[in-house]
């Protein structure tokens, strides 16, 4: 019973902070320092990280074996190096730590990608360039997912808000609503898809 109460209080605390966790994504919202910041954290899968390291070790071992052995470059060693590179590349975990949307009143929207290495990639979109935020259903040859995009003036392609991650629609809706409110575009707030985007390609 105390455990259940503790879990409930944690959930309430998260909601109060504007924090929601679904699967590998955690959504956080704060409005400190006059900016409206929406953050999506991406959890690292330990399993894939471990496999990635195993791939790296396998690659290093193959290279060392090649240098230490007296024989020339054999077909087997070439294949093992190639396989090691492939394993390391394929199993390399996504280096994105979080993606955030910083809404700056009267200025525009800043889209940020924070990598685990510490590198931050920022793109600023001025308010005058944004026509409308759109919730799209994206279809790939193997799956479907929701994405949040900005329809920009004088640009043919949509600008994806979250480029490296595909957070669930429950996390995209509050960001979409905030962008609508910010742009004062009169988007309906009753539903994320009450007016589906009919021109999506």
């Amino acid at each position: 019973m105390p455990g259940r109460q503790q879990a409930a209080s944690e959930t309430m605390e998260q909601e109060r902070k504007g924090e929601v966790s679904i699967g590998m994504y955690t959504y956080n919202h704060n409005s400190d320092s006059g900016f409206d910041v929406h953050e999506i954290y991406v959890k690292r899968s330990r399993f894939w990280v471990l496999l990635s390291y195993i791939g790296m070790v396998f690659l290093l071992a193959s290279v060392c074996q090649l240098y230490l052995s007296k024989e020339g470059l054999s077909t087997g060693s070439v294949w093992s190096i190639a396989f090691g590179i492939l394993v390391a590349k394929c199993l390399q975990y996504k280096p994105v730590k979080k993606e955030s949307v910083v809404i700056m009143p009267t200025f525009g929207v800043q889209l940020e990608i924070h990598f685990w290495s510490g590198r931050v990639h920022r793109r600023f979109v001025p308010i005058g360039k944004i026509l409308k935020p759109l919730l799209n259903e994206c279809v790939t040859p193997v799956t479907c997912y929701w994405s949040l995009a900005l329809l920009l003036r004088d640009e043919e392609e949509l600008r994806l808000v979250f480029q490296k991650s595909h957070p669930p629609v429950k996390m995209l809706v509050p960001v979409w609503k905030a962008l609508c409110k910010f742009l004062n575009s009169g988007c309906q707030t009753s539903s994320a898809v009450s007016e589906p985007n009919r021109s999506e390609t």
Binding site: N136, E137, C138, V139, T140, P141, C144, P196, R198, E200, T201
Partner: peptide
């Protein structure tokens, strides 16, 4: 052609143009 993704046609009929 370039018609891929989700499209809505007359009457709210939803069409999935799968990119195959």
């Amino acid at each position: 052609g370039n018609r891929s993704g989700v499209r809505y046609v007359t009457g709210g009929l939803k069409v999935y143009y799968v990119p195959w």
